[in-house]
Structures are given as structure tokens and as C-alpha cells.
């Protein structure tokens, strides 16, 4: 019974079914969504950790892979992220109380001078859906703010997003400032104009063209 519900939850994440009233996706109309099923699982006594690891993470990983393979695109991923938000709304209060086992902390922001956040938000939601605690610093984020956040969460991985060729320069400066402050801090970068060469050139630790890549980077680290 619980197994079946978990599988359904994973489907809700994969296909972006937020809750019962949500009309999306059309072929799941009137069915329970991530919101209801998460609640049922909690009421049935399942731990928040299990719901996250055995339900949400499974669904989110499928989305990540399909997105990488270009089988789904931004709108589907966004709906999946919304479904995940609905589930996390039940789980987050529990995580906040217990010193529960999230896999690690991930701090993300769009660099100074840049206000593009759609891609960054997708990355943030995918990483969260894969079992990490995510701290989103928003857009137009200066080096000091990244450093402050990193100091407050030792061991956290930092992620920088830039969508403008002009703000790539800021990404470089920010990476430099963070590394000078503490060279042990791991930095991931991404965004449409970013390339692996650029990553090597500015001394960041990981570049990924898509969110699934960064999830795999994090998983490899925490394994």
C-alpha cells in the first residue's frame, strides 16, 4: 500500500501533478497530486526522509534525465518543480525540527548585474528534489553575499548562474573572491553562455550545461 503510494508520488513529480484540483497534466485529471499523497504518506507513518528519498528523489531524477535528453522542456520541468514544492511544504517543517539526513547544503544565486532567474530556479528545485537543502540567494548577488552564506554553512557547495556575456566577467570576479577567501569552497557554475573552457579558465570546480549534471556532481561528492 505504502509502496504503491510512493510510486504514485514519484509519478506526480515526474509528470508535474501538483494537487487534485490542478488540471495539469490532462491525463491525470481528478487524481490525487503530490500535495495529497505526501500528506497520506505522513499520516500513514512514513518518515519524511523516506518520502523524500524513495518518492521525490526518484521522480525528480527521471525528470532530470528526460530534460537532459531533450524529451521534456522548461514547462514540464517547471510543473514538476511545482509538484515538488507542494510535497516539500509538508516535509520542510519536519526537516527543520529534526537534524535529519539531507545529503548536503547547496547555495545558489544569479551573479551581480544579472536578473535572469528561470534557469537558476530550475537548478535549485532539481537539486532540492534530489534530497539536498537549498539556500537560494536570489538574483544580482554580490561576492560578499555568497561568502557570507558559505561561511554560515560550512561544507556547502556554492552555485553561480549567469545568462549575460557581460555578467560572465562578474562570475569570474566572484569566483576569485570566494576562492581567495577560502579555497576549499566548491563552486559550480552554469548558464546559457557558460562553457567548460570558461570554467577552467576562472578556476571554478564544476560546470554543467543542465541541472542533472550538477545533481550528479553533488551525488558523487556526497557518496
Amino acid at each position: 500500500m505504502m509502496e504503491e503510494l510512493l510510486a504514485k508520488l514519484s509519478d506526480c513529480i515526474e509528470f508535474g501533478k501538483i494537487n487534485k484540483v490542478s488540471p495539469y497534466p490532462p491525463n491525470m485529471k481528478d487524481m490525487d497530486g503530490a500535495d495529497e499523497i505526501t500528506k497520506q504518506l505522513l499520516d500513514g507513518g512514513m518518515s519524511a526522509d523516506d518520502i523524500l528519498q524513495k518518492g521525490l528523489v526518484i521522480g525528480m531524477e527521471k525528470v532530470g534525465v528526460k530534460f537532459r535528453e531533450n524529451k521534456v522542456f522548461v514547462p514540464q520541468v517547471l510543473m514538476s518543480a511545482k509538484a515538488m514544492d507542494a510535497a516539500m511544504a509538508h516535509l520542510k517543517p519536519i526537516f527543520a525540527e529534526s537534524s535529519s539526513s539531507r545529503k548536503g547544503t547547496f547555495i545558489i544565486g544569479t551573479v551581480e548585474g544579472d536578473l535572469h532567474d528561470i534557469g537558476k530556479n530550475l537548478v535549485a528545485m532539481m537539486v532540492e528534489g534530489n534530497g539536498y537543502e537549498v539556500i537560494d540567494l536570489g538574483v544580482d548577488v554580490k561576492a560578499e553575499k555568497f561568502i557570507e552564506a558559505a561561511d554560515a554553512h560550512p561544507g556547502a557547495v556554492l552555485a553561480l548562474s549567469a545568462l549575460l556575456t557581460t555578467t560572465m566577467e562578474n562570475m569570474k570576479q566572484i569566483t576569485k573572491a570566494i576562492k581567495e577567501h577560502n579555497s576549499a569552497i566548491q563552486i559550480c557554475i552554469g548558464g546559457a553562455p557558460i562553457t567548460q573552457e570558461f570554467c577552467d579558465q576562472i578556476g571554478a570546480d564544476s560546470y554543467n550545461p543542465d541541472p542533472q549534471g550538477v545533481v550528479e556532481f553533488l551525488n558523487a561528492k556526497s557518496a
Binding site: E112, G113, D114, L115, V139, D140, L164, T166, T167, N170
Partner: peptide, 11 residues
């Protein structure tokens, strides 16, 4: 006109 356009590209 040879004016520096840098600020146009940054928030």
C-alpha cells in the same frame, strides 16, 4: 557617439 555603453548591459 563613442560613449561607454557598459552600464546598459548590467542591472
Amino acid at each position: 557617439l563613442g560613449e561607454d555603453p557598459t552600464a546598459i548591459a548590467l542591472a
